[in-house]
Every structure is written in C-alpha cells, then in structure tokens.
Computed example of a mutant assay.
Amino acid sequence: MRLSAPRITPVDLDDLTEDQREALAPFMKSGWVINIFKTLARAPRALKRFNVWAGYVMSDRNALTPRDRELVILRTGYLCRSGYEWSQHVTIGLRAGLTEDEVERIKVGPEAAAWSARDVALLQATDELVRDHFISNGSWAALDFLNEKQRMDMVFTAAQYTQVSMMLNSFGVQLDKGQTLDPDLDWRD
C-alpha cells in the first residue's frame, strides 16, 4: 500500500448519479460494494467496461485453474506492491487451493523452496511479465504444460492485475473494513 489516504475518494452509495448506480448495480446486489469499485465508480463508464474484462479474467472462461490464476494474481500484486490487491486475493487464493505457506512463499517468488515445476514456471513467467512486459523464450517453453489458450490467459491475468495494481496504488484505494495490511506491503508515506 502506497498511500495513507485516498487520492480519489470512493463514491457515497447514498449519493450516486444514475451512471454510477448502473455501473455499481452488479455489486449492489450483493449488499457490499468494496472500495475498488466505489473508487472506480468516479468514472462509471470506465467501470462498466472494466467489469467486463475483469469478469472474464476472474471467471471460468479463463482457462487457468483457479489456483494457477490466483498464484499469478498474488505474485503480480506483490511485485506491484499493491497491499489492497494482496489483501483481497489472499482470501480468494486460499479458497482456490493455495496454502498459507504457499501464500507466504509467493512473496519470495520462483526461487523459494518447495514449489512444483509448474508453480516455478508460472511464477517465473509472471515475474518476467511484470518486470519486463515479456516472457522470455525459455520461460515460455517451461509453460509447456499449458495449452495455447491457457498461456494467453496467463498473460491476460498478469496484465489485468498489473493494471489493477497501478490503479489501486495511484488512486490510494484503502483497505476495506475487516482487512489487514500485510506488513511487507506497507509502503505508505
């Protein structure tokens, strides 16, 4: 987390424009709208389009297994130093089959002990995407357990969460009620 206060104030759910209400409608049904969406609702037309792409990445249309997807998302969020993203996706990752030990090892990356060859390949490719915006030939070849669509979805997932991390960090989106900031991601000014 980079900022102690938001640069873009989340909308007040009791004072929404029609465009904001429409953009937030999918989340309002659940009765709980998290800060990322309340913040992005300041640009409601962008939020509506964002929801379509993010919905794809987080759905079963993404050919990665939920565990593989969350491994990529958490590593991306950690490398981008996005405390908010990390906090949200630790819970999702645990539900997707990651262990608490694995979540901690994600911080170390592909060099951490005890990863499977599959996990090392996914983490290495994620590191290269975030750091260099490109997967090297060697790392691409190491993803041979993924089919073409899965490789594309792996890149889409890292790209989506790099973008999300940029927004969260730059807009100063604060943790939601009940969340705890991982001390390793406390970069607040």
Rank of each mutant, 00 (worst) to 15 (best):
G83V: 06
Y84Q: 01
L64W: 09
Y56L: 09
L40G: 06
K48P: 00
W53C: 12
E70P: 02
T91W: 01
L71Q: 07
T91R: 05
S87W: 03
M58K: 15
R49Y: 07
P44L: 05
P66M: 01
A96K: 14
A46H: 08
I92Y: 13
F37P: 14
R49W: 01
V57P: 00
I73H: 10
W53H: 09
R61S: 09
N51M: 04
A46S: 15
S59H: 12
D68W: 13
I73L: 12
W53M: 00
P66K: 07
R61N: 01
H89P: 02
E70F: 01
A43R: 15
A96E: 10
L94V: 04
R49D: 11
C80E: 12
S59N: 02
K48N: 06
K38G: 10
S59L: 04
E70Y: 05
M58G: 03
Y56A: 07
K29V: 02
M58H: 15
Q88A: 12
G77V: 08
Y56R: 15
V57E: 05
G77I: 03
V52A: 14
D60E: 10
L94W: 03
L71F: 10
S82A: 15
V33H: 00
A96C: 05
H89Y: 03
L71R: 01
L47F: 06
P66R: 06
W86D: 14
A54M: 02
W53T: 14
I36N: 01
R61L: 01
M28K: 08
V90H: 08
E70D: 15
R69H: 03
I92F: 11
I73F: 03
R69F: 11
D60S: 07
R45C: 00
F50T: 03
P44I: 05
W53V: 09
H89W: 10
R45G: 11
W32S: 14
L47G: 01
L71W: 10
R42V: 09
Y56Q: 14
G93I: 03
E85S: 12
F27C: 12
T91H: 05
Y84C: 10
P44Q: 03
N62H: 09
H89L: 01
A54D: 04
F27K: 09
T65W: 03
S59K: 11
S59T: 08
A63K: 14
R42Q: 13
I73Q: 07
P66C: 08
S59C: 11
N62K: 02
S59R: 14
I92P: 11
W32A: 06
R42W: 08
A96T: 09
P66W: 07
D68F: 04
A25G: 04
R67F: 00
